[in-house]
């Protein structure tokens, strides 16, 4: 039978930075083919198909409904697979191979992680689950 795709509305203009992304214009409607937890969603818009940043999209039908998981303040242990240096104030800088506690998995792909006293957003694509929970 037909596959029903969810439709999302673009909330801000976006210019693609690599080949398989889509250019977005505020107000455009896109159908979501696949939602990746790294914050890139595969979309189709009329005849075009490509990846778009989830943070630039809002659901057309249930704008108030949250698809996000609740924060887990206990923390789930992840290891960084790549270093990242914070650009925004609310981000955290980490080296490769560090163990962090993931406390909130956000759909936009920038998860809230804790390392010691420090908390900040980190790209989920640079995190690998250790499959463990933090012992309290």
């Amino acid at each position: 039978g037909p596959i029903m795709l969810e439709t999302y509305r673009v909330i801000a203009d976006y210019s693609k930075t690599s080949k398989y992304e889509l250019n977005l214009k505020a107000g455009d409607l896109v159908d979501i083919v696949e939602k990746s937890s790294n914050g890139w969603w595969f979309c189709q818009c009329e005849t075009q198909r490509g990846w778009a940043p989830a943070s630039y999209l809002e659901p057309l039908d249930q704008p108030e409904e949250s698809e996000e998981e609740e924060p887990n303040y206990a923390g789930e242990l992840y290891k960084t697979t790549k270093a990242y240096k914070a650009v925004e104030e609310d981000e955290i800088s980490l080296e490769v191979g560090e163990i962090v506690e993931v406390i909130h998995k956000l759909l936009d792909g920038w998860w809230v992680v804790r390392k010691g006293e420090e908390t900040g957003h980190y790209p989920s694509m640079f995190l690998w689950s250790t499959g463990e929970r933090k012992e309290v």
Binding site: G50, S55, Y56, Y84, E88, M125
Partner: peptide
């Protein structure tokens, strides 16, 4: 076939568009 997602992290939401998180 679906291409591999970009290898770079997605952009942060534009500040004025950031969903309120309380």
């Amino acid at each position: 076939s679906i291409k591999q997602p970009p290898q770079n992290p997605p952009p942060r939401p534009p500040p004025e568009m950031r969903r309120k998180r309380t």
